[in-house]
Amino acid sequence: MADNNIKTRDLTVDEGFKLGDFLKSWEMVLVYILVIINIILSVVRPDLYSLSTLQSIIQSGMDVSPLVLGMVLVLMLGDIDVSCAAVMIFASMCTGLAMDHGVPSIIAVLLGLLGGVCCGAINGFLVAYVGMPAVIVTISSSMLFRGIVEIILNVNSLKNFPSFYVSVSWNNIAGFFPVSLLLFLIMGAIFIYLLQKSRFGRKLYIIGNNATCGQYSGIDVKKTKLIVFMVMGLMSGIASILFVGRMGGSVSSSMGTGYEMNAIATCVLGGVSTNGGKGKVYGPIIATLIMAFLTYTLGLMNIDANNRKIVTGIVLIIAILISNFRDSSDAKKKSLISAKAREAK
């Protein structure tokens, strides 16, 4: 009796590992793009294509990387955080002020991270418990945080930072492996575990797909949102270490504008949906490297910063168009298969 099979719906996903699908996945497409950029770079400027160039390319793109990782979680909820650059500056200010007052450097760093977490908690509280839309909360709180930095620093800049800041950003382990890349990969691994393997991460996917559904299946949506925004604040605090280091150990209130948009763009290029509930951490990690290589390569080809923006914008739009196109053709294929299966029955 063939009808017996219909009784229970088969919900198991047994895709298994297929090399063909793996090679066509979005993450692999990103790897291809990265390789192509490298080939172009090595062909166009073979004189500059060396280990030290690669190191500086990677180092130049790493300060935005913690923001990207944090942003993955926020986007996963279907929210957005455009205040992260302001939080980053706020956190660096906390550290810098503490150092100026003679606090030991390790505690100053912790104070900076704590400052970031507090900013994140304010955002999270307003989004989760007051129920305001994340876009508007973070737009206005970014004005608020940056405004506080403006009040405290005015036109001065802080120059007194722990000495390891610069070495984290610019030094290499054993002469060839950038410290910042190692830090990024460790954080990336933690986030991959957090999002793909832990209970907390799976909750985020459910909330991102359908918050009401998540609420009814026993997830404390408000608390989870608060935690995510606090993690975002913590990551902004960590970003402040790399950022200040890259800027050579100084910070002023007007620095780092536009970092939030770079972080969001990188996440989306990495395949995270801004509607929430879709995406993996691998993608944004590769996309961070792509963005670094892209900016640096265009710079080496003597294209100035403003024209680089045009290229970045076009690359972003084309990447999204490709992934949209793949999604819709995938959906068509699946519906075709299920239609055939129905006909067969």
Binding site: I80, M261, I264, A265, V268, S273, T274, N275, N306, N307, R308, K309, I310, V311, T312, G313, I314, L316, I317, I320, L321, N324
Partner: peptide, 23 residues
């Protein structure tokens, strides 16, 4: 028509128009 998420589409065009403004 191409169904890109508005935030991202306009983020991309924002970069383009900013570049064009300089150009």
């Amino acid at each position: 028509y191409l169904h890109i998420v508005p935030m991202i589409a306009t983020l991309g065009t924002m970069y383009i128009f900013r570049g064009l403004a300089f150009l």
